[in-house]
Design a protein around this nucleic acid. Structure first.
Lengths: 327, 327
DNA sequence: ACAAGATCTGGAACCGCTTCCAGGAGGCGT
DNA sequence: ACGCCTCCTGGAAGCGGTTCCAGATCTTGT
């Protein structure tokens, strides 16, 4: 059906090897040969079979991208950036959604291992040891999580927390709540730790509310915890929780930001659209996606695990309408 | 490195062919042979190489799934369902995001054609002829769009519109606006046509506002068009526009639903969370994703283009807080 | 007990490409 | 004119499976 390298070779009147070379390393064949091959390729509309190439080179030209939930608005931005970057490298992205289930996740990784050159892994729930095991088999870049010295791309959570607390402190708040996400989440632990230490340094009082699930419902539940703690400001583990807080506060007659200020994390699209718009710590999702692919391709090319962990990506506080002076 | 079929054959003391058979068609080998193979497989942790299998069978075990924008909350649900279904079939899904660009889209399709067995294509912007051309090369299922007799999965837009208008009519509305999406969108044309014919049948007056872009900003822009048309209810091409309408109405002091009722399309997650919550015509995204994969696998198995187009998936009006009696 | 058939098995070709290897053609120094 | 090097080229051996084919073994009917 489709033209193969043989057809090209025949039409160009050269050998298969020459066609292969003309395509892969044009400088290694005579200009005339190259031109004949190019003409034949054009006439036949030939595209080399990635499968066959994969079999002989051991490279598939595909990278696996695992996310816990593509419906979580935090991820699409990252995935899109990663895909764009991959396209520039001529790589394809095999996206896998683990449905937040660590078992499916490892299963997915195992079956995909055979058909990808490496993984970009966003696996908040998997065990450290599982991840280490995967890394032994195949190049892996971790996203939004650090495990030992494994290559990873993370955001500067501590600095994000610092910006958020400085903002609140400047508005006169002295007592703030942190609505925590899942206890097992590496990012949650990072943010919690940062909240504690930064608050201590700034002489702010901190109360921990939660853990709640990292979604709208979690925020709704968290709102009541927060109200019981009589604080004037709250930092949420993420924006979905923040949105839940706003909604529930509204329902309970608590005004935002007059009675209580709210800051989220992630800057998901919806945060800019609700009212009041949610102040949030934004993370450069596109840079994250790009950096993940870049680091992985480094790993793929220079066998010598290029770089290992990278310096964290900067975060930035976006002040919107959900934060105001202390009442 | 990894075990190959040869290693298994050696360890089991049988030939490669027997190993292959024992794995692919266990009933075609003696039970004893099968057992020896199974033991060897287990001891070696052998998994056949999909690449190699692909080369000799011509099947990759991967299907391409193209969406215009994975960040559009309409798609993740569909993609997730498709992925789950694919997993059941032992297929992988190669997700590609065309960034709403028809050129990238066709490019993506062309490069992916070599590495997938078929496509599920959600391509609202591509030309009919381009799509037909793709279908000649490789099995394709279209999503949310009908092109001639090409296999496709669509929703029952007309019935959705009917439910929406019936709801509004029951609330006493006589004059409603339709805020149209992109002129080139097949779905928009479907909905527009349905709005016209159903409204005529129900003796409702319809004014068309738009076309606007199918996002929040489009809704904001559409709101002013709607107000200028002095209607008491509006149907938006999709929920993002609906959310924009709600927001802009709020900013202009127009109360929803007291002054004007709003119905969207798609039932994206955010619609349930805003206030007032958006009434909307919901489409079974999970069934859509599943059906897409099912239809494609049918196509893949029975060469004879199984079924062609399917009957539309049912839509359902979800009444929330954005619709009320005519003022 | 023997031919005919059904079952099972191993060898080998093949899928489409890359890459190693050996050899021919041409350029250069002496 | 000779040998040596470099540059190109074609042949062939893989990569790891599947599958066709022919032969070996085992049933079965008579």
């Amino acid at each position: 059906m489709a033209a193969t390298i043989k057809d090209v070779a025949r039409l160009a009147g050269v050998s298969q090897s020459s066609v292969s070379r003309a395509l892969a390393a044009p400088e290694r064949v005579r200009p005339e040969t190259r031109e004949r091959v190019e003409r034949a390729v054009a006439r036949l509309g030939y595209h080399p079979s990635r499968i066959a190439r994969g079999l002989s080179t051991g490279r598939t030209g595909t990278i696996g991208f695992v996310v816990p939930d593509i419906a979580n608005p935090f991820f699409p931005g990252i995935v899109k950036a990663a895909q764009r970057r991959s396209r520039e490298f001529g790589l394809s992205v095999l996206l896998a959604d683990s449905d937040e289930d660590p078992a499916i996740e490892m299963d997915l990784i195992r079956t995909l291992t055979k058909q990808v050159d490496g993984f970009v892994l966003c696996a908040p729930r998997a065990g450290d040891d599982d991840l280490r095991a995967v890394c032994d088999d195949i190049p892996v870049v971790l996203l939004n999580r650090r495990v030992g010295q494994l290559p990873s791309i993370i955001f500067d959570n501590a600095d994000g927390v610092r910006q958020a607390l400085a903002h609140l402190a400047a508005l006169g708040h002295r007592r703030v709540a942190y609505v925590a996400g899942p206890r097992t989440s590496w990012v949650n632990r990072e943010r919690l730790r940062a909240v504690r230490s930064v608050a201590a340094a700034m002489r702010l009082e901190v109360v921990e509310a939660g853990n709640v699930s990292p979604d709208f419902e979690g925020g709704v539940a968290g709102a009541d915890l927060v109200l019981a703690a009589s604080v004037t400001a709250v930092i949420a583990y993420n924006d979905m929780i923040g949105l839940g807080l706003i909604s529930r506060f509204g329902a309970r007659g608590v005004r935002v930001p007059d009675d209580v200020s709210i800051i989220g994390f992630d800057d998901i699209p919806a945060s800019a659209l609700v009212s009041p718009a949610l102040s949030t710590v934004s993370q450069p999702k596109d840079r994250c996606g790009r950096a993940g692919i870049d680091l992985l391709t480094d790993l793929l090319n220079e066998r010598g695990r290029a770089g290992g962990a990278r310096t964290p990506l900067p975060t930035r506080l976006i002040v919107r309408a959900s934060t105001g002076p202390v009442p």
